[in-house]
Nucleic acid binder design. Structure first.
Lengths: 192, 192
DNA sequence: TGTATTATTTGATCTAGGTCAAAAGAAACT
DNA sequence: AGTTTCTTTTGACCTAGATCAAATAATACA
């Protein structure tokens, strides 16, 4: 899908505004596993995934990677707090497949926020949507068993479950690889 | 502090706009433990705490209350997803002390968003700020031990720790009352 | 001030899910 | 096709924090 469609699905921009807005985005091809942002860097761009899956992850002291978030086609992707508060990112950002993304810098985005009321609205809607998603995940992590969390994932992101390595999903769900593997085994048994 | 100050601290509104905006807020005194929103209701108002502490909580099947969020002076308070997505709230909203709050309905807020670009901006800034807070809490819950979470709370919300019942804090931090009590005991021992 | 109610602490026990280590399966590379 | 490397599965064991139950301590109330 085209960038203009993604944007217009959120806020119905007049064509004139839309053309200007789009001119600030850049279309980039991104290689698998090539970091878009590294830990410690300030994340200067907001991405929109056109094709591929991305993730943000953080590195524990012992070197283990913990996936914080997945981003699929049509979703905006960034190291959220770093991008919005402009402080060093705690996370890495990478694509898990060779992908195509649109990007816009924080500066240009701010410029567009100031220039167009509609754009400000888009910003507001995107953050409340993201907010809802984070709240949902928080509830899942805080209140559900490992198994319930996986079921939730199967429902909400069936797509991702089949596209990315088990280890990534496990850490995203706040459990170990081994635990997720055992859950999967039990589920297959029940399903057959 | 006055409502106009809270708002102007976030976005510098021209006086004319400010007067109009403020006219849509209502000042309410709220009694301790009287629910502002009950589970199942759509949360129709956004509140700003002038005086007091509030919380949102949800009721587990077994009847236990789980605090989801605290709100102190100067903070906007609501059953977030319910207010923004206008679906039935999973949470109750109440003040833990006799309090004074400002409130605005979703309808009026939308009206102000449409009328003033500045107001839209305020909405965007508030949601990104809230987003950052939720992300931080998610990280705490997902990656830290019970004890680290309590220390985090002591730093970030020293205020709340001394103002509300231990049971509320424990459930907010995703642990049982007993566990928090034991942590506190251990901390006092170390401090002396 | 004494009694009822609610909040906090303490102790004993249990369990979901973690850790560590190794085997089995898949992919990727020559 | 054979070897190296990465991913997933399986097993044995362990620990943080939960649960259950009862004892204190603090507040509210008559």
């Amino acid at each position: 899908m085209k960038l203009s469609n993604y944007l217009q699905n959120i806020v119905p921009f007049p064509t004139s505004e839309l053309a200007d807005i789009i001119s600030y985005f850049e279309r980039e091809k991104v290689q698998k596993n090539k970091p878009l942002v590294k830990e410690g860097q300030v994340c200067s761009k907001l991405y929109l995934v056109e094709e591929g899956v991305g993730r943000s992850f953080y590195l524990k002291e012992d070197g283990k990677e913990i996936t914080q978030w997945f981003f699929v086609e049509g979703q905006f992707m960034s190291s959220i707090e770093s991008f919005f508060q402009q402080n060093p990112s705690l996370y890495y950002l990478e694509m898990l497949e060779d992908s195509v993304v649109y990007s816009i810098t924080r500066e240009n985005l701010d410029l567009l926020f100031a220039r167009y009321h509609n754009m400000e609205k888009l910003g507001r809607l995107l953050s409340t949507e993201m907010l809802t998603r984070v709240v949902n995940k928080l509830n899942a992590i805080q209140f559900q068993t490992a198994r319930e969390r996986y079921d939730y994932m199967l429902n909400e992101y069936p797509d991702i479950v089949n596209r990315v390595a088990l280890g990534y999903i496990a850490s995203y769900l706040g459990m170990t690889q081994e635990t997720l593997s055992r859950i999967r085994k039990a589920e297959t048994r029940n399903r057959s």
